[in-house]
Nucleic acid binder design. Structure first.
Lengths: 196, 196
DNA sequence: TAAAAAACTGACTGAGCGCTCAGTTAACAA
DNA sequence: TTGTTAACTGAGCGCTCAGTCAGTTTTTTA
């Protein structure tokens, strides 16, 4: 029964910020969901923005961690297969951390990052992490010959943009990304494959 | 000096909704920007939501129109080159209608579409229009042999997701999509090209 | 067990903002 | 010119909501 309230607040706020956005999430609602008084929220966090930033920071930490673990604990035959498996892993993560990925797909964080330097840094770290992973895989593929001679960074951005773009179709309820998985891997392979 | 106020309101609101989002756009601001009294805004539009929907509807009309004109006024050698040129055209449109594309990349419309049927229809029309264009081009490419045997609809979604995903990098200030243009076309060609 | 510190409470505040309405001005028709 | 309608105005109402604060409860420390 210790420090529980603070964690409960973080959990509820994460969910609400993701589903309803920053502006539409009200302290009264977090209070009701957690049983903590509104005053308690402001006891732990100076203001709404600080609460949001705390959540973003924790998300950054855990996503960087997960990706690090993924590359450390796995070995890959070729750079190409590594890239493909990273797409799967990314989609898997997006599913298991659904609410926080939704947060990333909202405008809230990007707006905040214009006035808050720490916010900008968290966002940058998250995106850099993901693009870096793809870039490394492509770089490796170029060395082992499974991937052709292309600009690693730029194509990494293209691949990441493609995967993330599809994820948004899901988020917005426009299409079920799951049914596009095979085509996604197919497209990735086509782009990267060394065809000499 | 006729009906000007209404148009001024629509223009100012389009810009503000795009840049600041639905919630963060206040009637007082639209009023100040246009010189129209707040009451005037509510004289022309019953409420804020109706103002937003009017803008979304006009956007739908003009984008459907532009794409129709594009396919009618151009002829293409192959389905593959048609697809490539459509990507260019899409990026070109995103530039010339920058604010309204920003509107599309926000959550506002998707949130509204959950309670407003007309809003849902507008969004669906816009996205269908774009994916349909790509699908047609791919279909044509399959017939003329420039594109391999793939699922037109699904790959159209992938291509669209890829292009739109890159556009977001721009929007969010994460990367300059312009420098990725060559890679984008390269990726598209790789995915589609008939390699039999 | 007493004192101090930390955690928590909820009624209250004040600013913000969508929207109304009673009235004024401009445009047009007879 | 007069009557009628459409366009326009802005003070103000009612409500929402982030944040405060004086006080209570729980935990820790000595």
């Amino acid at each position: 029964m210790k420090i529980k309230k603070k964690d409960a607040i973080l959990n509820a706020a994460t969910h609400l910020f993701s589903v309803k956005g920053f502006k539409d999430t009200h302290m009264a609602e977090i209070s009701k969901l957690t049983g903590a008084a509104e005053g308690t929220i402001f006891y732990h966090f100076n203001n709404k923005e600080e609460l949001f930033l705390t959540i973003l920071n924790e998300f950054k930490e855990s996503i960087l961690n997960e990706f690090k673990k993924f590359t450390e604990e796995n070995t890959f035959e070729t750079g190409l297969s590594m890239t493909e498996e990273m797409i799967s892993f990314y989609l898997h993560m997006a599913q298991s951390m659904e609410d926080r990925f939704l947060l990333l797909h909202r405008h809230d964080a990007y707006e905040l990052s214009q006035t808050s330097e720490p916010c900008r840094q968290h966002l940058e770290a998250i995106y850099n992490c993901m693009v870096d992973m793809f870039e490394n895989a492509i770089e490796q593929g170029k060395k082992d010959g499974s991937i052709g001679d292309i600009s690693s960074r730029k194509v990494a951005m293209i691949i990441f943009g493609m995967v993330d773009g599809l994820l948004r179709f899901n988020t917005y309820g426009l299409y079920d990304a799951g049914t596009l998985f095979n085509e996604l891997i197919y497209a990735c392979r086509k782009i990267l494959k060394n065809d000499r």
